[in-house]
Design a binder for these strands. Structure first.
Lengths: 155, 155
DNA sequence: CCATATTAGTTTGAATATCAAACTATTCTG
DNA sequence: CAGAATAGTTTGATATTCAAACTAATATGG
């Protein structure tokens, strides 16, 4: 156990401990930022759902439920709220009228873009002063995590 | 708008999009991994609480509630469950008998260590092939995020 | 000292979120 | 075309959360 490996070990612990709490804090900040804007009636969970529908435009209810790992019943309840508040719309698929495709309304798209901009600001702050090769490393780290997730969850 | 800044922009978008979903997946995996072990009666939220109590040994109920941003009532309910399942114990502070200090039981410590090991495995996988200076960069990125969180939430 | 204020944690009651299973409407299939 | 399969909703039960009322213990200051 030499000095270098001890230092790396310590770095690993620092990174591990940091990661645990950061996400919770980000969720909380996202919600509180959004509540300062014109979108005061949106919770962090609803924001997450709006983000997912914006990212995966016109997907079906079942597909979105699978992506978010929510039961269909739970998603129906959430969609009712977001539809009532004017952020999403249900579009009956005319080829197969059992299917409902989900889309953002223009209000929903405004929220989506505001949220996306916040995320971008966070990433920019995070990578402040990093050069191209540093950024490549960050991408690599994220891809490694995705691989790990894929392996553990059996793909 | 030259080629390099376009590429960086794309990298930023990649990183931003990746981050959104990774945490949810990690939470889910943590819960499913823990359910494969001897700790089948633990949810992701309870795991988070055990982690916090393990990290901040013998803190008071109010302090833990503040750390996790839970109301005291909610924390009481969660503590009841974890105490019943044998993961934590409430220790009445003899200097001030209003105060309850929270600690892990030996079963709780086993769970804490298993969970911590999983996190370490994740970080190791994430930083696979990285050298000392790369790891420093990762630490810097995390500290930048923490700064950003601090600024936005007004410290 | 003691009456009052303060503090730590619990209980309570209401609101919300979630799930699985039953159900409805529609489409597919043999 | 009858029955199976599929997409989404409804329903009933359970769990989570919060704020406010409450209990017990300690601090304060007259």
């Amino acid at each position: 156990m030499n000095a270098i490996s001890d230092e790396i070990k310590e770095d690993y612990n620092f990174i591990s401990d940091s990661l645990v709490d950061i996400y919770d804090q980000i969720m909380r900040i996202e919600e509180s930022e959004i509540k300062k804007s014109r979108f005061k009636d949106i919770t962090a969970k609803e924001l997450h759902l709006v983000h997912t529908i914006g990212l995966h435009d016109h997907k079906t209810t079942s597909e979105v439920a699978r992506i978010l790992r929510l039961s269909k019943g739970t998603l129906t309840a959430n969609l009712n709220n977001l539809e009532r508040k004017g952020y999403i719309s249900r579009i009956i698929n005319q080829r197969d009228r059992r299917i409902i495709n989900l889309a953002l309304t223009s209000k929903g798209r405004l929220l989506y873009r505001a949220h996306y901009a916040f995320h971008r600001k966070l990433v920019e702050q995070c990578l402040k002063g990093f050069d191209g090769s540093d950024i490549k490393k960050m991408k690599q780290a994220l891809m490694n995590v995705e691989d790990f997730i894929g392996e553990v969850s059996g793909r």
